[in-house]
Amino acid sequence: MPKANKSKELNNTPNMSLRNQILKVADELFYRDGIHTTGVDTIIAQSGVAKTTLYRYFPSKDDLVVEYLKDRDRRFWECIEVAVNQAPDNPKAKLVAIFEWVENLIAQPDCYGCPFLITITEFPTLDYPGHQVALAHKNKLRERFVELAKQAGVAKPKELGAHLLMLLDGAFVERRLYGHSSDRIRLKAATTILIDNQPN
């Protein structure tokens, strides 16, 4: 494939930086097709940028994976905070609102599961940079659940936080396994049952 010149690159990106264009394409390919399967040359071709441009912003594929996951993390938390802020002003309702948002997310046709779980599955080695970003995301999410559980006055907030994370991850795995061939995952109802059965 001939290299894209600078003017062609700029014409392809009227409303976003070249870095964001590369990241957007990488996000779509990594999430849909997998990180191992997606080569840098494919990202370059679909981004319409020169190889030197990609490596100027992302010195290695590992760097690109890390930025992809950080961007996914940022967008995830933006959506979570919107859901929490729109919920009634009590901790239980805020927990349920998080899972209601995830239930709706999983029902979307372009949802292939959790990008962080997918990355950890592809790269099980703990010292892989992308694995570390994914693990930090999961730890932060569990801590958020524990914080809300404490505010709700449950007797064992850490235990509930761990159970809620398992419930959420299980829903993402089911979506990955069965796609849209299965019935809609009733995550909100399952969350309510789990919280209501916690001793206070």
Rank of each mutant, 00 (worst) to 15 (best):
G48A: 03
V49N: 00
V49P: 06
V49H: 08
T52G: 12
T53Q: 08
L54A: 03
L54Q: 02
Y55K: 00
Y55Q: 01
R56W: 12
F58D: 02
P59N: 08
P59D: 14
S60W: 02
K61D: 05
K61L: 05
D62T: 15
D63Y: 07
L64H: 00
Y68E: 02
L69Y: 06
L69G: 11
K70D: 10
D71V: 07
D71K: 13
R72A: 15
R74L: 05
R75N: 15
R75H: 15
R75D: 13
W77L: 03
E78S: 12
C79Y: 11
A83H: 07
A87E: 05
A87K: 00
D89P: 02
P91A: 11
K92E: 15
A93S: 15
A93D: 15
L95T: 04
V96Y: 05
I98P: 03
F99I: 01
F99L: 12
F99R: 01
E100N: 11
W101V: 03
V102F: 07
E103M: 01
N104F: 09
N104E: 14
Q108H: 14
P109K: 00
P109T: 01
P109D: 01
D110A: 10
D110W: 11
Y112S: 08
F116E: 04
L117C: 06
L117H: 11
I118A: 14
T119A: 10
T121W: 13
T121F: 12
P124T: 07
T125K: 14
T125H: 13
L126I: 13
L126P: 05
D127W: 11
Y128G: 03
Y128N: 13
Y128A: 12
P129Y: 00
G130E: 01
L135W: 04
L135D: 14
A136M: 08
N139L: 13
N139Q: 15
L141G: 04
R142D: 09
R142Q: 15
R142A: 15
R142L: 12
E143C: 02
R144T: 12
F145P: 04
E147R: 05
E147K: 07
Q151T: 08
A152G: 05
G153Y: 12
V154N: 01
K156D: 15
K158N: 15
L160S: 03
L160Y: 02
G161L: 08
H163E: 15
L165N: 10
M166P: 00
M166Y: 13
L168I: 07
L168W: 06
D169V: 01
D169T: 10
G170C: 01
G170L: 04
G170T: 01
A171N: 08
V173W: 06
R175N: 09
Y178D: 03
